[in-house]
Simulated assay, not measured.
Amino acid sequence: MQMASLVNMPVYGLNKLEKKQFLTARLLELTQHHYQHCGEYKRLLHCIGETCMPKDAEHIPPVAARLFKEYQLKSIDEEEIFRLMRSSGTHGSQSSIYLDADSAKLQSQVLVKILQHWLGKARRPMLLIDAAQSVQNKNGMTARAAGLQGLSFFGRNHCYALNSDMQLDVARITEFFQRYEQENILIFGFTFIVWQQFIQQLEKLNLKFNLQNATLIHGGGWKKMQQQAVNDALFQQHIKNRLGDVAVHDYYGMVEQTGTIYMQCEHGYLHAPVWSDVMIRDTNDLHLLPFGEKGLIQVNSTLPTSYPGHCILTEDLGVVHGEDDCQCGRLGKYFTVHGRVPNAQVRGCSDTFS
């Protein structure tokens, strides 16, 4: 499929039959591509008994996310590497994701399409709940840096809320809010950082602002939030108590499939865009589970061509609640995430800050 045709697909516009047809064809095509161009992936399929290509997407063996930490999984030559992406985890090794120029461009274009669906095309005054230094990394771009950089394209007059030591710059954010509080402000940050370094600091200082029509996008770090007994509803309540009229959207995503993020709708569900799919597998034998049952999250993406990241088994637990029938009206599967598998390695964009 041509890149332009792929990018121009409707974000949440295909029904389940149309989407299944598209996903099946594309994922099988990618499986064949990576089988031919990535020796490690070929050996992986052989080790689990796959000596011929699967006939449908459900039977494509997913790659365990942790394998990207242990092997250089790439389907391109060294000289074709345009960008090296690394996961943000500080405990243990990091995932390494190899992108050529076309893959990087495709991921970026799809991310823009998804976010434009939620934010529109107009750039807004933007507050980033992080330090400017977080986007600087000489050893490859981290997931956290990529998130900050990717979302910054949707803003203007950018303001970083934290100093280089990750402490709240009260004077800076006060001036920003006073200047733009009547406009459609965009706020972005990683969940635990937003909570600990921003909201809790505002509460300690007893600071409140009266935003009129702001949007906060945040993601990652829910394991630490759960350890503090903070759920999504409580998180949103504290945000609105301190900032005023703010639409809050969580998202689910990972460096292994940058571009295809899963945004949270107004009813609290994460949504799979047209370029990706979510499956739930049993934690014991990995068989597929029906809607409503909790298990391991598998994420499929039609974008990765430079590395075999099209079907990934995560270490997260979740539930798919349905398809094409969410009250928000968007087509596709919608789901919730219920934390990490017990004893799984902690990782995530927010987890890099402690």
Rank of each mutant, 00 (worst) to 15 (best):
S96I: 11
G329Y: 00
A214N: 02
V230R: 14
Q298M: 08
Q32Y: 00
N206Q: 13
P290V: 01
G140S: 11
K138L: 07
D316Q: 10
L45S: 08
M141I: 06
R179Q: 14
L45H: 11
R43P: 00
T314W: 02
E70F: 14
A143F: 06
H33L: 08
N210H: 11
S108E: 12
L27F: 13
S103M: 03
G220F: 00
N284D: 09
Q212Y: 01
L17H: 01
L317M: 12
G39W: 12
S103I: 01
T90S: 14
K69E: 15
S5D: 13
G147A: 08
K121E: 14
L17Y: 01
E256F: 06
M9A: 11
Q264F: 01
Q227W: 05
A229F: 10
S134P: 02
V248D: 05
K208D: 03
Q236D: 15
F291D: 10
T90K: 13
G13A: 09
V341I: 13
K223W: 00
V63Q: 15
F235Q: 07
S75C: 08
D232A: 13
R26V: 03
L14D: 03
G332M: 12
K20V: 05
Y180C: 06
M166N: 11
E78M: 05
T283K: 05
G120V: 04
D130P: 00
R66G: 15
N206M: 11
E183R: 11
L303I: 15
Y251I: 09
M263N: 06
Y180D: 07
L84M: 11
P125A: 14
H218Y: 12
K121L: 13
I239H: 02
S350D: 12
E80R: 04
F188R: 05
A64M: 09
L151G: 03
T142E: 08
T24D: 10
T336I: 04
Y334E: 08
A64F: 13
N15H: 06
Y334N: 10
P342T: 07
T336K: 09
M1C: 06
L111G: 15
E18G: 09
T31E: 13
V337Y: 06
R66W: 15
D100S: 02
N231H: 10
N157W: 03
Q21Y: 01
P125N: 14
F68S: 15
I199V: 15
A131T: 03
S354Q: 06
G189N: 06
V299H: 01
T51C: 04
H46P: 00
L202W: 07
G295H: 04
D316N: 13
R242E: 10
A146W: 03
M85N: 14
V194L: 09
G39E: 15
T142V: 07
E58Q: 13
C159V: 04
A229K: 10
K294H: 04
N184Q: 15
G92P: 03
G292V: 08
V299K: 01
A143R: 02
K333H: 12
Y307E: 02
Q237S: 14
N15F: 00
F291Y: 14
Q237I: 12
K55V: 02
Q36W: 01
